[in-house]
Nucleic acid binder design. Structure first.
Lengths: 226, 226
DNA sequence: TGACATAGTGTGTGTTTTACACTTAATTGT
DNA sequence: ACAATTAAGTGTAAAACACACACTATGTCA
């Protein structure tokens, strides 16, 4: 396709902030750059948008190519367009954030040069990726309190304690067990399973799964956590 | 600057959803296109991003050039990247939403081919601009309930009734007068002025102004309307 | 079988939200 | 000058929700 509009053009990339949860800390997936600029520095997975794919498609393609990730929760975050974010030329980047279930975390780690870092202890990042990551983190915190997306970071079957640990890790403070359980169950989003999980020398925990159908009903009204 | 990264490239535009409030209905500012594609169709103000300006700068420049608007509240909304949103070639658009005080509304209307439309009665729009506008509207609704931005659509001095009308227009339902006033005043964002406004055969109304300093204190904690 | 560890549960108190109706102060017309 | 009109401004009681708080239940393991 020829350039109908004739200007010097910025290059377009997508960058993905991929969050995972290991049961204790919130983690972000980074990739070590093999080429300059910022060779050998950690960076967000991402790459150029092709002229025949949408932005979402570009983000999903990069996640699959670079990290072997499929079917993750993915949402557009913000578009970063500082003039000199890339030292070589003008590059505008549409940032996404992704939430990955533990089942998929292993796959991601297999990918060459990809590694999970706890968000509390990140290495120096290339470009403006530290800023992007900070933006993603505050968006995640915000969303967690008014939309049921925490489940995207947990295995399909999980206990209420796991869910509470996740909320505590992301929000950064302790929650009261009884109030948390009362609140979560009152939202009527979880289906208790027959099974329970035995893990250690103590009473086994009831397993639940998230019920997206119930969630849809709720989404419109909105809910509020905390 | 040469193209270091060598691909076919999308063109980059910004489009602005500009909201205003006339005391009764929420309004959006549109421009009649003078050139194809969609010649003579109404569209959002916007244009190409120059290679040496940031995205925010591009949005502000277009608002000033096309509508004579300066110093408006402006926030990035979402980036639209469907492959065929522009019939001629690939164009990715970073959408913004802007809130304009009535003092500036007149200026905007003077601009050639620009006109305010009530959002409840919009003409057919060019490109995917109807979708962008819908997105902006739902963002505005959302933000209004948890951030003090309503003031950006009112004159510097306003009455509580004006503020209530604005909330009712945007949210689309009636609010109880006493509860509204109690809630708004409890947020401690408004400074009562010495003056009052006489307007019609009835008791005059107390004027207030929004106090951004107090608002900053509040912003961190967040507040909740409704 | 006892020690241990996490799961699971209820109540009382203070705060917030909601529903609801009359008085006040100005203008206008007679 | 006063009666009618119009929107401004004000309080309270009941219900819902948020928060603080501590013990019992059920499994494993030595």
């Amino acid at each position: 396709m020829p350039h109908v509009y004739d200007h010097p053009r910025a290059a377009l990339t997508v960058d993905c902030v991929v969050f995972g949860f290991d049961g204790g800390e919130l983690q972000a997936l980074l990739i070590r750059r093999g080429l300059p600029p910022f060779k050998d520095t950690w960076a967000l997975p991402g790459g150029f948008v092709r002229v025949e794919e949408t932005l979402d498609e570009a983000a999903r393609r990069e996640l699959e190519e670079e990290n072997g990730l499929r079917n993750v929760f993915l949402e557009q975050l913000y578009t970063f367009g500082s003039v000199h974010r890339d030292p070589r030329e003008r590059v505008v980047s549409i940032a996404y954030f992704a939430l990955v279930k533990p089942e998929a975390v292993a796959a991601a780690t297999d990918a060459a040069e990809a590694k999970w870092f706890p968000v509390s202890d990140l290495p120096t990042l290339a470009f403006d990726h530290a800023e992007i990551l900070t933006t993603a983190l505050s968006r995640l915190r915000g969303k967690l309190t008014y939309q049921p997306i925490g489940f995207e970071l947990l295995p399909r079957k999980f206990t209420l304690t796991q869910l509470q640990r996740l909320y505590e890790a992301v929000l950064g403070h302790h929650l009261d067990k009884r109030n948390f359980r009362k609140k979560v169950l009152s939202l009527d989003l979880l289906t208790p399973l027959e099974e329970s999980r035995q893990e250690g020398p103590h009473r086994p925990a009831q397993l639940f799964r998230f019920d997206p159908e119930r969630s849809d009903r709720l989404k419109e009204r909105g809910f509020l956590f905390e």
